[in-house]
Write a protein that binds this DNA or RNA. Structure first.
Length: 443
RNA sequence: GUGGCUAUAGCUCAGUUGGUUAGAGCACCGGAUUGUGGUUCCGGGGGUCGGGGGUUCGAGUCCCCUUAGCCACCCCA
């Protein structure tokens, strides 16, 4: 009579999330929401599924986008969103009248990419985007940097580096060489510097673009230069005089670092790295990449940049903007590898034990009293020996256990034990709420 | 999508040139400890060796396919 069992499994690149990881994820989402709001970013949402033509854009380079794409039941050509930027472009074009300009939004949602999975790279993952559109102001670029910094700090990181570059510097340089039209290929090669080394970058530059070897060497030499932002800028400056784009880039980067300095960010937190370029074509100005100092190999956990025109595919209205995206799942993978994910699997710090099942009313009502005071309390739901209940509390990561047996009921009191310190106190029923509130460690 | 490495208990891994009933640590459950976890001691459950096919007297071990993970390319959070 037994039907064959279906083997429980999930698709390649897709994963279940267990309680301890989910608690960590929710904590980060809450933090991101808080930080974004302090800068005035407002929340929006868009559909997970869109017409393929929207997501593909004009180029229709599906192979590059790696989208999950299929025909729906009405034979519409549809696809799962692979980032939050394209949907935002469509959204902005469609709702410009309602949202006005400039406009700041954050959007924290799941995206899907049919790529081959690797560590920190999944087919379903969550991004936490924030963008400011409708302004060319450098102030927006600088605030974007500050958001990234505040966000990582608020999540609890101290050792991370935000690498900054500005496409205008490179564009200015290329203007001088007459290589403007080779920008994409050159930048893509340059972006790999840290990974494949200067020789291979040079080779790729000369093989895949029309740049002559000596030009490629000049570009590479400038971008590889080491030093403080001021030193680097001083070094590039002579190469850019006369190029409007280059000079604007210089001014914007200088202004940004001036703020970084006066804002008192830790030394080395923000660096100028002329070699980072981002493979994406659409960045035109400031570029951001964020690396964890303790785990740089996992890649950038928060990246973004300035673009000239977000919604050019969908409207004639020009919408310049700047923004970045926190890669939540990549960050969580990094935190897990760094041992920063707590093992606790309960959101409640307090376990109400049931010592005497005949007094269940007292336990239920007292737990409720604690909850009404804003505390998170789980009632142990099985009739098991008190030792088992303690063990359960310990395994799940509860901080406090509340106990009452015949002696306590006779005396009108409770026992409250802190599992972390081992301290146990007798507390009068009337004082229980206050006592528990004070015993909870802020976390 | 292309190429490479890997898959043994919930987790991390042993398992000799193919040869009896596949092991350990941690985790889990029970007991020592019928009002107290985390330490200690004792005991227990749990594996068709990822799945399918083949070679062989005999396959965890060799071959093919498949699924998944990891790495490189590509791209990117």
């Amino acid at each position: 009579m037994n039907s064959p069992l279906i083997s429980p499994r999930v698709l390649k690149g897709f994963r279940d999330t267990l309680p301890n990881m989910m608690l960590a994820r929710e904590a980060i989402l809450e933090t991101a929401r808080r930080v974004y709001r302090t800068y005035g970013y407002t929340p929006i949402d868009t559909p997970a599924l869109e017409y393929s033509e929207i997501l593909l854009g004009k180029g229709g380079e599906e192979t590059d986008k790696q989208m999950f794409r299929f025909a729906d039941q009405g034979e519409r050509d549809v696809a799962m969103r692979f980032d939050l930027t394209i949907p935002f472009a469509r959204f902005a074009a469609q709702h410009l009248q309602e949202i006005g300009s400039p406009f700041r939004r954050y959007h924290m949602a799941t995206v899907w990419r049919a790529e081959k999975p690797q560590k920190g790279r999944f087919r379903e993952f969550m991004q936490c985007d924030f963008d400011t559109i409708g302004t060319d102001s450098n102030a927006a670029d600088i605030e974007t940097l500050l958001v990234i910094n505040d966000l990582l700090e608020a999540i609890g990181f101290e050792r991370f580096t935000i690498r900054i570059n500005n496409r205008l510097l490179l564009s200015g340089l290329l203007d001088q060489f007459g290589l403007e039209d080779q920008a994409t290929g050159l930048l893509r090669a340059l972006d790999k510097l840290a990974k494949i080394g200067p020789e291979k970058v040079l080779a790729e530059m000369t093989e895949r673009t029309t740049a002559r070897p000596e030009q490629a060497e000049r570009i590479l030499a400038l971008c590889r230069a080491q030093g403080t932002p001021e030193e680097l800028l001083a070094e590039v400056e002579p190469q850019l005089t006369g190029s409007p784009r280059g000079e604007e880039g210089l001014a914007r980067v200088r202004e940004l670092f001036a703020v970084v300095q006066s804002a008192g960010l830790p030394a080395g937190r923000v660096t100028l790295d002329l070699s980072i370029a981002r493979g994406l074509d659409y960045y035109t100005g400031t570029i951001y990449e964020t690396f964890l100092d303790d785990l740089p190999g996992i890649g950038s956990v928060c990246s973004g940049g300035r673009y000239d025109d977000l919604a050019g595919l969908f409207t004639k209205q020009r919408l310049p903007g700047v923004g970045a995206s926190l890669g939540l799942d990549r960050l969580l993978a990094a935190m897990e590898e760094l041992g920063q994910i707590e093992s606790a699997s309960t959101p409640a710090p307090v376990l109400m034990t049931v010592f005497d099942a005949s007094r269940i009313n007292d336990y239920l009502l007292t737990a409720r009293r604690l909850r009404n005071a804003g505390l998170c309390v789980e009632l142990f739901a099985d009739e098991k020996a008190i030792g088992k209940q303690f063990k359960y509390a310990d395994r799940r990561g509860f901080q406090l256990v509340v106990i009452a047996g015949p002696d306590e009921f006779a005396a009108g009191s409770w026992q409250v034990k802190d599992l972390v310190t081992g301290d146990q106190s007798t507390v009068a029923d009337a004082d229980l709420v206050t006592f528990v509130q004070q015993a909870i460690r802020p976390s």
